[in-house]
Design a protein around this nucleic acid. Structure first.
Length: 187
DNA sequence: GCCAGGATGTTA
DNA sequence: AACATCCTGGCG
């Protein structure tokens, strides 16, 4: 088990999104298995924020690979992405679902009433469970003492169309762990 | 299944 | 000012 460092996110977004399935995500001591991701590309992908938000294009050009891109969706839910840049293609990986491994008590406290299987079963649910919010936007967290990603054995993921978007629905850039019971939607 | 809630970046 | 949005929980 090796720690994922910045150069991991110099691969293209689809490669990163696939490879992160099954890996462990450590966020301030809470550890969770990544079971669902999506890839977004800054060039030619109408679903990516860079398509219609100058601030997102600015983020891609100014920030470093591996930096957190966190934004508020529908005025309610924080969504956690990681910047991918430096390779053939640039963009983001959206974290869509995780399964708790360590610190499940803290996640339960942050999501009162939620069943354990659903604690991190969605992009808004996982940020709530882990306590991620806009304060982490732009943060470089990969080398932090109590944060980071551990590269576990590769998993052959499920793949399908992305969720909740209105454009570029045909691209199969959503990936899921085949054995997980905490996916946000069926594949 | 449907729908409100709610903040933000962006355009008109 | 008004619009669309990488969602969720509650109620039917």
């Amino acid at each position: 088990m090796t720690r994922v460092l910045e150069d991991f996110f110099e691969q293209d977004p689809v490669t990163c999104a696939r490879r992160l399935i099954g890996c462990r995500f450590n966020w301030h001591g809470c550890v969770a298995r990544i079971v669902e991701t999506e890839a977004y590309e800054s060039a030619g992908d109408p679903a990516c924020h860079t398509w219609f938000r100058p601030s997102a294009r600015e983020f891609v050009s100014r920030q470093q690979p591996g930096d957190a891109y966190v934004y508020l969706n529908y005025g309610v839910h924080w969504l956690f992405n990681i910047l991918v840049k430096g390779g053939e293609r640039e963009g983001f990986v959206l974290f869509r679902a995780v399964e708790p491994l360590n610190g499940i008590e803290r996640m339960r406290e942050r999501r009162p009433g939620a069943k354990d299987e659903l604690l991190g079963a969605g992009p808004g649910r996982l940020t709530r469970a882990l306590g991620i919010n806009g304060q982490s936007h732009g943060a470089s967290f990969l080398r932090a003492a109590r944060c980071g990603i551990l590269l576990d054995s590769p998993v052959e993921p499920l793949a399908g169309p992305r969720i909740g978007i209105s454009r570029a629905r045909e691209l199969p850039w959503r990936f899921g762990h085949p054995a997980s019971h905490s996916l946000s939607h069926r594949f």
